[in-house]
Amino acid sequence: MQIEHGKRRRNILVLSVLGILIAIVFLISMNTGYIRLTPMEVLRTLFGQGTEKQSLILFEFRLPRIVISVLIGAGLAVSGCVMQGISRNALADPGILGINAGAGLMVMLFISFYPTTAAAPIYLLPVLALVGAGLTAALIFLLAYKRHQGLSPTRLLLTGIAVAAGISAAMIVLTLRLNPEKYQFVATWLAGSIWGTNWKFVLSLLPWIVVLLPFVCYKAQVMNVLNLGENTAIGLGTRVSREQLVLLSAAVGLAASSVAVSGGIGFVGLIGPHLARRLVGPKHQMLLPTVALTGALLVITADTIGRWIIQPSEVPTGIVVAVIGAPYFLYLLAKSRS
Rank of each mutant, 00 (worst) to 15 (best):
89 N>R: 10
34 Y>W: 08
69 S>R: 07
70 V>F: 06
64 P>T: 03
58 L>Q: 04
53 K>H: 10
16 S>I: 13
56 L>G: 01
39 P>D: 02
87 S>C: 09
60 E>G: 05
9 R>I: 05
83 M>A: 07
80 G>N: 09
13 L>Y: 14
82 V>T: 08
45 T>D: 04
50 G>W: 12
60 E>R: 14
83 M>F: 09
18 L>K: 09
68 I>T: 08
91 L>P: 06
8 R>L: 15
10 R>M: 04
34 Y>N: 10
89 N>P: 13
14 V>Y: 11
58 L>D: 06
68 I>S: 00
79 S>N: 04
75 G>L: 00
93 D>K: 12
88 R>T: 00
54 Q>H: 13
18 L>S: 05
13 L>V: 11
16 S>C: 15
67 V>Q: 01
75 G>T: 04
14 V>A: 06
21 L>H: 07
36 R>G: 10
66 I>K: 12
11 N>H: 12
20 I>F: 13
35 I>V: 14
22 I>F: 06
81 C>L: 09
51 T>P: 13
73 G>N: 08
39 P>L: 06
87 S>I: 01
82 V>K: 10
53 K>E: 07
56 L>R: 07
24 I>V: 14
20 I>Y: 07
59 F>E: 05
14 V>Q: 03
90 A>W: 11
33 G>R: 12
35 I>N: 13
30 M>E: 04
19 G>Y: 12
62 R>I: 10
58 L>A: 01
36 R>E: 15
24 I>G: 05
40 M>G: 08
61 F>L: 15
69 S>H: 03
16 S>Q: 09
24 I>T: 04
84 Q>N: 02
80 G>Q: 09
34 Y>P: 10
57 I>G: 02
78 V>I: 13
62 R>D: 01
25 V>L: 07
26 F>M: 11
31 N>K: 08
31 N>Y: 01
92 A>V: 07
65 R>A: 05
36 R>V: 14
65 R>N: 05
83 M>S: 05
54 Q>S: 10
46 L>W: 05
29 S>T: 08
76 L>G: 02
90 A>D: 11
17 V>Y: 05
23 A>D: 00
13 L>F: 14
19 G>V: 12
90 A>I: 14
93 D>Q: 08
49 Q>S: 11
38 T>W: 02
73 G>Y: 13
75 G>D: 07
75 G>H: 02
51 T>G: 15
80 G>R: 12
80 G>K: 13
